[in-house]
């Protein structure tokens, strides 16, 4: 139900853009105004969300340790899984952000009769997530060829590497295949796995369909219904250099692509997609496991009512005395 609804919403929005791209009066809206509004929403929204997180302090050092602590000098410590230093934390975070270390650990548990609980490898989610995110990043960077003039060498290098197999013309980008395959898997997984289907919200499907629509329209444009690429770049450069104009040669599918992108980036700050920034701030991951060596300060600490020794001794005075235990006051 959630899935169907979000599919319909994305399809309607896509159709809206397709029509908007061909109606003269709406081209500026879809080609200039909405993209600018979306970028502004993204920048302000992301900054706002991050600042909100930053304003809430981390009162306690609650590292989730996934390996041996540093203790006795002869005992081998897990410097990545249970980091003791800032360097260790940095490496742990790098593994987490770049390679999805925690997801790599994923297993699946299955209860068989007996009862016998068995565990198996379960790396597909990790693989698909990694394939999606890296492809997305590379595709994003590749798109810089539309936004930068002259095209920087690293962008060309990346495009060359991505099209390494030189299949067809324009050459097939591997990331285009990977991203669609990965998104397809992630969607299929939400449908197939009853547990994941049960927890999936409208927004989960919405984000997926938005991304599939974005990648799909891009793939259609590159391989099947090519727009005038020079005109596309003129539009993109116009946006970046604040001299916006919509060339007459662009329309249709390109507007679908641009609009879905605008929606995605505008949707970012309001959604779970903020995990891209949040992952850096996760206190269970980005803190060293050196609690006992270095005091962590809680900025909002306040005094609490305690039961002091004096009160305690007074309350149990006779009993302490009868037991012959040492006392402050006889």
């Amino acid at each position: 139900m959630n899935a169907l609804l979000s599919l319909i919403v994305v399809l309607v929005l896509g159709a809206l853009a397709y029509v908007g791209g061909s109606v003269e009066g709406l081209r500026t809206l879809f080609g200039v105004i909405i993209p600018y509004a979306a970028i502004l929403t993204f920048l302000v929204g992301v900054a706002y969300r991050v600042v909100r997180w930053a304003l809430s302090p981390v009162p306690f050092r609650i590292t989730t340790t996934c390996g041996q602590q540093k203790s006795l000098p002869w005992m081998k410590a897990g410097y990545l899984e249970s980091p003791y230093t800032t360097l260790g934390v940095t490496l742990r975070m790098a593994l987490e952000v770049l390679l999805f270390r925690s997801l790599f650990r994923n297993t699946k548990a299955e209860l068989r009769s007996g009862p016998q609980l068995v565990y198996g490898e379960n790396k597909y989610l990790w693989l698909a997530a990694l394939a999606f995110h890296w492809s997305f990043l590379i595709i994003f960077l590749r798109h810089l060829r539309f936004f930068m003039q002259p095209v920087p060498a690293f962008v060309n290098l990346l495009s060359d590497a991505d099209g390494f197999f030189q299949i067809g013309a324009p050459v097939l980008y591997l990331t285009d295949v990977f991203i669609l395959a990965a998104l397809g898997y992630l969607l299929w997984r939400r449908f197939r796995d009853p547990q994941v289907r049960y927890i999936s919200l409208f927004t989960d499907y919405f984000a997926l369909f938005l991304l599939i629509g974005l990648a799909g329209s891009g793939v259609l444009m590159r391989y099947f219904f090519r727009p005038d690429i020079v005109a596309v770049k003129e539009l993109a450069l116009g946006l970046v250099t604040f001299t916006p104009a919509v060339p007459v040669q662009v329309g249709g599918l390109f507007f679908v692509h641009l609009f879905l992108l605008s929606l995605l980036i505008a949707y970012f700050p309001f959604s779970k997609l903020m995990h891209f920034a949040g992952v850096f701030l996760s206190p269970t991951r980005n803190l060293a496991n050196n609690n006992r060596a270095k005091r962590h300060v809680n900025p909002w600490d306040y005094p609490v009512k305690v039961h002091t020794y004096a009160e305690w001794e007074e309350e149990f005075h006779d009993k302490i005395k009868a037991a012959g235990l040492p006392m402050e006051k006889e």
């Binding site: 997180w53 304003l55 809430s56 989960d204 995990h275 996760s282």
Partner: peptide, 18 residues
């Protein structure tokens, strides 16, 4: 406002189900 962990964990779950 007091716990970044709380606010963050409210915000960033993607419901991957891992």
């Amino acid at each position: 406002e007091k716990y970044r962990s709380f606010r963050l964990f409210m915000d960033i779950c993607v419901r991957c189900g891992a």
